[in-house]
Design a binder for these strands. Structure first.
Lengths: 343, 343
DNA sequence: ATTAGCACTCGTGAACAAAGAGTGCTAACA
DNA sequence: TGTTAGCACTCTTTGTTCACGAGTGCTAAT
């Protein structure tokens, strides 16, 4: 295993590189306060650290930079949680300062603040509507041919979709449909609606309405949209200021992935509760080669709701970002629980 | 004024530069089919064109590139509308191929297709809800303290907002409020709602409901959101492939503006009906120095609804972009009119 | 009026040198 | 035996020079 001195040197290398983005050499290290031995000694230790795979050179006679394995070790063993300062805390609190009740808005604000505090790109996976319970379904006819179906969940999420009305349906029929739907489906988890719709509601509709199956499909369609969680971003352009992204090709790759959303969604979706850290190629995504992704989950009560994440260069201020994510996700969970639990 | 020969030379310069992004010299020009005089002659003419401000050099002995004034002249006098090919038309038609009824979705698809066809960034200013008429207001209580207000317009736009309920309000009261609101406001333009709310509805509410003015403000708030049009983008990263944006600083400026939306909104909002072209500094925006913005409006019947635009480098394929915008905006208007007029 | 010819300018890319930052290794030291 | 000073070596960076090519403007001939 690593000696104490190796650990110290390694830690200083990582900390310095995170700050300067420059390979750090033995001379630079020997001048640091924490370090009291000569550059030659450091060179020997660095050779060992390199052999172990924790650091690498960019060319034969360059200083060293942490390898992905190095970052992984750093994150797993050396990280000391950073205490947030007054200003950070104030900014985080400001997310909830205004009286906002919509879940989505709160989450969106969180993304914005998070990106401002870190200067990285923040990503928030919106509340999963899947587990929400249906509060109410409404259908509002716009004209003879089209109507709009509106679904309201217990957390106040509203989803709507237009659809074609079957011919010859009258207002009374429509009201009947709505009543049946609410009767049978209110309180059921959104996820289960489709199933219930076809199993329980279909029979009832058939008894009361002509042309019932046209309606049925339209309603099923409407319900389905809700299944996907929304992604919110903050500071999409922050990465452009990072020196590792002076290369347009890298920028293009990354931005393309961000714009497509699908890739990001996959990366963020599958994470477990709590803090997760994926470094560089651990993300299994070529556009993320020089990036790390740190995610944290937020919840209402014990029910995991969504994910909040930071995308930055592998040379990221892990300590600060983790502290921030920890703090924000806890705050977010607390506020949301207070607002929505057993409402 | 310009002689025919100067015009010819100028046109060929612009066309060539638009295609290659390289300054074009007299030798290159003399080899073109359209041009039958020697490079020396061309040099003389170019000197004149430069004196007139239509073209410029990048350095003393470079070829020429069109100036902003040059592009302006080109656009105003030399542009021949390009005939769209089969593939383009097919793609445009595909916007409306699926049965979509939501205005916003159609508009969003248009943005996507437009950016794919041009390889530039497309921007669509969504339908102005301001002129929509109110179809229905609904209020759904979520729990004792909060309720959600939902506004539906005659075009099927749905806007919703959560608000705090006053203490001690019961379901009956709420129903009364909703009835009054729909009674008095249905059919009124969204723009006028606020006014009407305070002038006509307030009195009625006072007669029937305790604590009415808390409700009043909440509802007024909800109504207000609808006033801003939404922006949709397509191909945000396309600009990264343009050679003029190999400079990270320029990219950063432009992307920042796009991310903030406010700047774009201002640029697009104030345009007149039909096609508008703003070249480089005509946009009055430092981030747009190397960009041109072409906008077209779309409408339902005679009522202007929104704007559809292309953001590209000043060295843009004006002819093609204009033809496309013209075609799409006409199609869009036609389809929307059919769907929503006198619904 | 047009064009051939020529001198001149500027950007580009290659080749080269000097400086600086860093390394690895060896030998001396405590 | 662990530490360090010293040195040769490597590689990047920066600046300089040079030759080349693309282009121009001007003059003189057609």
């Amino acid at each position: 295993m690593l000696t104490d001195r190796q650990l110290l040197i390694f830690q200083v290398i990582v900390d310095d590189f995170i700050q300067t983005a420059q390979p750090v050499g033995s001379r630079t290290l020997s001048k640091k306060e924490e370090i009291s031995f000569s550059s030659a000694t450091i060179r020997n230790e660095m050779a060992d650290l390199e052999e172990l795979g924790f650091i690498e050179k960019t060319h034969t006679s360059s200083g060293r930079i942490p390898s992905e394995k190095g970052y992984r070790y750093y994150v797993d063993h050396l990280l000391s949680p950073q205490k947030l300062n007054q200003h950070d805390i104030f900014k985080v609190k400001s997310i909830f300062a205004e009286r906002i009740y919509e879940l989505e808005k709160i989450v969106q604000r969180s993304a914005k603040i998070l990106s401002e505090l870190t200067n990285y790109t923040s990503i928030v996976l919106g509340p999963a509507v899947r587990d929400n319970k249906l509060k109410k379904i409404q259908i509002v006819p716009l004209n003879k041919e089209t109507a709009i179906a509106i679904i309201i969940t217990d957390t106040g999420h509203v989803e709507n979709r237009m659809f074609h009305l079957p011919e010859n349906i009258d207002a009374g029929d429509l009201e009947k449909v709505v009543n049946i739907l609410n009767d049978r489906l209110a309180g059921a988890p959104i996820e289960s609606l489709n199933n219930k719709l076809y199993k329980e509601v279909a029979v009832l509709l058939r008894q009361h309405i002509n042309n019932y199956d046209f309606m049925l499909h339209s309603i099923a369609d409407t319900i389905q949209i809700s299944a996907y969680e929304k992604l919110f971003f903050g500071g999409k352009t922050n990465m452009l200021s990072q020196p590792e992204f002076h290369d347009i090709e890298k920028v293009k790759n990354l931005m393309n992935m961000i714009e497509q959303e699908k890739g990001i969604y996959d990366l963020i979706r599958k994470n477990k509760a709590g803090i997760n850290i994926k470094i560089g190629r651990e993300n299994n995504n070529s556009a993320m080669e020089n990036c790390s992704l740190i995610t944290a989950s937020y919840s209402i009560g014990t029910e995991q709701l969504g994910t909040i994440a930071i995308l930055g260069p592998t040379r990221m201020e892990y300590s600060r970002v983790i502290s921030l994510l920890d703090y924000i996700s806890a705050d977010l969970s607390a506020v949301l629980s207070k607002l929505y639990q057993n409402g």
